[in-house]
């Protein structure tokens, strides 16, 4: 327990240093956040423009889609804000930077996480929260708690997939293309009611790559639409726990692969 507290304290300190670093380049920070908002906003602009002509996508109204979109974006931001450095892992391995990380007396993953702050991702968080708050359906206390758990669970699902794939680069595989593609699938397909993609694609996006569990499944619970899902309602209610389980699994894979790490020697 003392170890966990110490790790968290050090993480907070390193993250504060990274934040101070990001604040040195004020204009870059502002442009980065604005670009993040514009990037995510242009994705939602598509939905908004289309729904001027069509009242529903797969039976979901504009407000419901906006809620789903906001839920996914907020979960995504919660994943990417602390883990944005993970994308550079290939480089850390290739340049031998990881050796230095391994020599320090702090959990290597925590050190990598604290390497830098994803500035543009603050824009993701901002856009996600705005959509979420504007489109939030009326919730009782229990549903509000579920909503919070869903955001965290969704973030953990994305983190788990990203961490598990990144672990492969410890065995000197070039993983960047696969990881970018997985990220792309999460952000492209995660914000729509999965039923529109047809049986096979929906199945793959639920059980092969768990995109559906980031936002679609929990949003269906909150919008009272569990009847449309391709998983039983109890599973849908437990979806935030899936994030925790997947993350635990991914962390095990990460630790395993880390034991097999061989420096490139550069």
């Amino acid at each position: 327990m003392a170890e966990v507290v110490r790790t968290l304290r050090l993480y907070w300190r390193l993250q504060r240093a990274a934040m101070r670093g990001a604040l040195q380049y004020r204009l870059n920070l502002v442009i980065g956040v604005a670009t993040g908002v514009a990037y995510q906003g242009s994705g939602f602009a598509f939905v908004w423009v289309v729904m001027h002509t069509f009242p529903a996508i797969g039976g979901w109204s504009l407000r419901e889609i906006a809620f789903l979109y906001g839920l996914r974006l907020t979960a995504h931001a919660l994943y990417v804000l602390p883990f944005s450095s993970l994308i550079g892992l290939d480089w850390l391995v290739r340049e031998g930077e990881l050796d230095r990380v391994l020599l320090r007396p702090l959990n290597p993953l925590v050190q990598i996480m604290a390497k830098r702050l994803g500035v543009g991702q603050l824009g993701d968080l901002l856009a996600g929260l705005v959509l979420l708050v504007v489109a939030l359906p009326p919730l009782g206390p229990a549903s509000a708690l579920f909503c919070l758990a869903a955001v965290v669970g969704g973030a953990l699902v994305e983190t788990a997939v990203s961490l598990a794939l990144a672990s492969l680069s410890l065995r000197t595989w070039n993983t960047i293309a696969v990881r970018v593609f997985a990220d792309d699938l999460f952000s492209k397909f995660g914000s729509y009611p999965m039923s529109v993609f047809g049986g096979a694609a929906q199945w793959a996006l639920t059980f092969v790559l768990p995109v559906a569990f980031v936002a679609y499944v929990p949003a269906s619970v909150l919008l009272d639409r569990t009847g449309e899902l391709n998983v039983p309602a109890p599973v849908a209610y437990a979806s935030p726990l899936l994030g925790v389980a997947l993350f635990a699994l991914a962390y095990r894979i990460w630790s395993r692969q880390l034991r097999h790490y061989q420096s490139t020697g550069t």
Binding site: V50, F54, I57, G58, K188, F189, Y192, V196, F197, G198, A201
Partner: peptide, 10 residues
């Protein structure tokens, strides 16, 4: 593929 499915649903 994504656009095709969404527009077909629309």
């Amino acid at each position: 593929f994504l656009l095709r499915m969404i527009w077909t649903a629309l």
